[in-house]
Every structure is written in structure tokens, then in C-alpha cells.
Write a protein that binds this DNA or RNA. Sequence first.
RNA 1: CGCGGAGUGGAGCAGUCUGGUAGCUCGUCGGGCUCAUAACCCGAAGGUCAGGAGGUUCAAAUCCCCUCUCCGCAACCA
Length: 522
Amino acid sequence: MSKKYYITTPIYYPSGNWHLGHCYTTVLCDALARYKRLQGYDVYYLTGTDEHGQKIQERARQNNMAPKQFVDGLVDDIKKLWELLDISYTKFIRTTDVEHETAVQKIFQKLYDKGDIYKSSYEGWYCTPCESFWTQTQLKDGKCPDCGREVKLTKEESYFFRLSKYQDRLIDLLTNTDFLEPRSRVNEMVNNFLKPGLTDLSVSRTSFDWGVKVPFDPDHVVYVWIDALSNYITALGYASENEKDFETYWPADVHMMAKEIVRFHSIIWPAILMALDLPLPKKVFGHGWLLFGGDKMSKSKGNVVDPFILVNRYGLDAVRYYLLTALPYGSDGTYTNEAFIKKINADLVNTLGNLVSRTIAMTEQYFDGVIPAPEVEDKEIDQPLIDAIKGAYGNVTDYLEKFEINKALEEIIALTERANKYIDQTTPWILAKNPEQKGRLKTVIYNLCETIRTAGVLLRPFLTKTPPKIFAQLGINDEELIAFDSAGKFPAKLVGCKVQKGEILFPRLKLEQELEELSKLC
RNA sequence: CGCGGAGUGGAGCAGUCUGGUAGCUCGUCGGGCUCAUAACCCGAAGGUCAGGAGGUUCAAAUCCCCUCUCCGCAACCA
């Protein structure tokens, strides 16, 4: 059996505005999943939706729909989005799946039987119009922080999870292992929540009923913590009659998410797993936010960028490329239409696309499209390019292992930049005029073809449309030549391949014109 | 003193952990080339690194202190 790799996105809350932020996390995981698959891992890639809760119930009511009916539509939308983005997930879990709901009840029961869940009550300030509970410290001037209206002291019965019991183990986990990355998030968690001391966690609600019923107390529904977080194991069949996938894939290799939910995944989730006596995930990674201009993307701010518009207009790979390069390790990044257009032009059009175009064109013109065997070398000029070709594979994989996706891609673009320079150094068009230089020209063309082959192979985890186009243009029929680890091998067996000029990989975008169009469309 | 992050040429960023006179991409200007998608290659101008005529040091963007500004987090927005 091959090595396994289990990667997850969070399960998204169907708020009705799927935007580039959701796309970021999901495309990021997709790239990692593809990367591991290409390396021969048995990959399980999970994504899904978190569909219970008061907000959904309310919004469904506003739309005169049953909650399930309401979320069904939103789930259809997001599935279409993932299809649009070529997301290669293994399973899409919904918290409304019967298997999930059943398993959640079993988990809740198990924790209760063990004594890690107990019944009690909590006091809070209740805002009737908002139907929300607030703690003393959350109140603004004694009023509801959301709407500013009066609140009244109310007592609500609830089941509690003994989170406090796991405090020491959690501190140890976060501070003494690399469970949580980036490291800066560890400080945040430890200083804000662990050091001050954990309090037990309310894990049921009676104020709404759109959720999983507590098995032994149907007035209560299981609150989000246990319902949503446990998707990572219920998706694999945990607490079902068939736990085969669970046995194969758990623990997760990485839970990927944006920074605002790191807390739940690095404190509450491990505690639940500890209580269930299950192995912990190997890694929780909290990436930054894709900001719009300087602001967080949100519907209320009206700055949501529609992924469908971008993909339809610029192609999937342009969008995937931008997303994957937009965020440095652990930090925030920005989306603007202008930055997007410029980045695509600079990297994909001018550098990568143009290199492929000119290389194929020269191979056709000088060698009738048949990739020649190298003959005459010029070590001083050739070696730096060959070193770059050979080195790229190791650099890219190193960055991927460290979740520095943007740098991995930079590495590939840098390779193509290097090849563009090589063309100027070797001036093939001059070599072509002198029959005595034919041998030298063969080597130059061969090296260039190798470069674009390597770039194409290395791009396979990130871009889904472009690599096959590059291989087709190179006339590659041999699977070996597109295998991921073949990227590190030079020379490969390209000699004799019949190149074929295809459509331009990425058409040039006119900045002014596109900005105008986009402002109309969005 | 709530916690965390950030403040570097016109824009966006790297460099700060392991101190030694600042680097990348885009833009601008000049040159070269013509295989290529007005693309490509080379070169230049432009910053003294938020502020403190602060501390440590032979030497600080880089370590310490203070101030200012911006952003995020504080029970469910990737």
C-alpha cells in the first residue's frame, strides 16, 4: 500500500456569497493534493459545508424555504464553483448527511458517557431581536454589540464539554510541537486563550432546532463545535458501520484553513479528539486572508469578487495562478483587478507563454518541428540553464513541503525567465543563418525544449489546463516525460518529439480595457 | 499596558531570527535584438529602511527602550 495523505479544507458555511477567499483555501488544498498524488501518495482530499445553525434557519425562513431546501441551493452553487476550478476533492461532506448526523450523535453520546460532557446552564445577556447571547465583556455600553438595543440577563440550559480538562495537554501540544503553523499563531492562541485558562465549552443549544438532536435530550441540538469539527472523521466513516477509510486515512496530514478559525482547530478540535482517545491531526495550518484592496472580502462591504466572472473571462489557470501566488507564507495578500491583470501579463503571458511560443516556433522553423539531439555544447552558457532546470524540482518540492506555495511558483517562473535570457545569449536566429553552426543550434533548441517541458511538469499541481497544452505542443506522448519526478532529470528523452504549434497559452490582456470591463461586470 | 501582525525607492513585497553601509517584481528612462503574444535581453534613475539628533556596538533596516499610525483577533466571516 502506498503512503497516504489526508488533507482537508474547512467545511464552509453557506452564506450565499462564495467568493475568492473560499476559492483560495480550496485551490491551495487542491494544489497540495495534486502534488502528493503526483508523488505517488494515496490522497484523500475532503471539503464540504457546515449547514446547521440559527443563521441558516433564519435565512431559510426569510426565504420561505425549509432549511434543507435553502442550503441545497447554496451547496449546488459551491459544487459548481469547485467544478469550475477543477477541484479534485475525494469527498464533499455536508453536515446534513445522514451518516454525519448519526455519527455526531454517537460522538456526543460517547463524550457524555465518558463524563466529558455534562449538563449545566450559563448566564448571559440576551438580545431578543438578534436572538443572540452575549457575555458581559462583549456588550457595548451595556447594549447589544450588534444592534445596540437593550439586552436582558437570561439563563440558558446547556451541555458543556470539559475543555478545561485538556488545557495542559493543549499547551504542550502547541508550544512543544509544530502542530500549529505558522508559529506566530501559536503565540496568539497561547497568550489569548490558554494562559488565561480555558473554560468549559457550551456544546448544545435550545434556542433553535436546525441541527443534530442530542440523542438523550431532544430539546437540545448539538452546537457547531462538535457538529462541524467532527466532519473530519465522520467523513471517513468514523462511528459508522464501515470505518475502513477512517482506519486508512486518519489522522489527517493537514487541516488547512484561514486564520480566523485557527482557534477552533488548534484548541477545541484537538481537545475533542483527546476526549475520544483518537490520534491528533499532524498539522493545522492557518493561512492569511486574501484581502480586496485593503479590506476583508465580505458581502456587506460589496467587494466580493465573483470567481465565475474571472474564470470565464481569463481562464481557470490564470485565476488559480493568481490565487496561489497572492499570499506569502502565513500572511495576508491582496486582490485587485489591476494587480491580477498585471500579474497574469507579467508571468503567464510575457514570461511563460511567450517562451513556449518562441521555442516551439524556432523548433518548427529550424528543424521542421522535430526536436534535435544536442551536438555542440558551450559549457559556460549552457551549464547555468541546465543547473536551473535540474535544481527547480528540488526547490519547488521543498517550498511545497513548507507550504510556501507562492515561492514554489516563483521558482518555476524564474526558470522560464532564465530560459528567455538564454535565448538572447545564444541568438538562435543567427546560428540558423550559418550551416556550420547547426550543431550548436541543435543543442540550444534542445535545452529550450527541456526547459519548457520541465516547467510544464512542475506546474502540474498548480495549473490544470496549461501543462497538457505544453506537452501537446512539445509532441510528448510518453508518460515518463510528464511524470512529476522527471522534472529533475536532464536530459529527458525529448529527441525526436514532433512539436506542434498550438493556440497561444495566455493571450495578452490590455490593462485599461480589462479594468473597464471588469468594473462593468462586477 | 488585552493579544497578534504590519509600517523599507511611485506601487506591491524580501531582507530583521544567525547586526557589517539595502534586494526583488511592476512602473519610468535609455540601449539591444527580431525566434516570439508591441513580447524578450541589457543598463540607468529613484529609498538610509514610521518617528525618537534614544540605548547597546567598531558597525543596526537588523538587538533593547519609548512614541505614533494601520490591520486583525476577543464563541462560529476561507
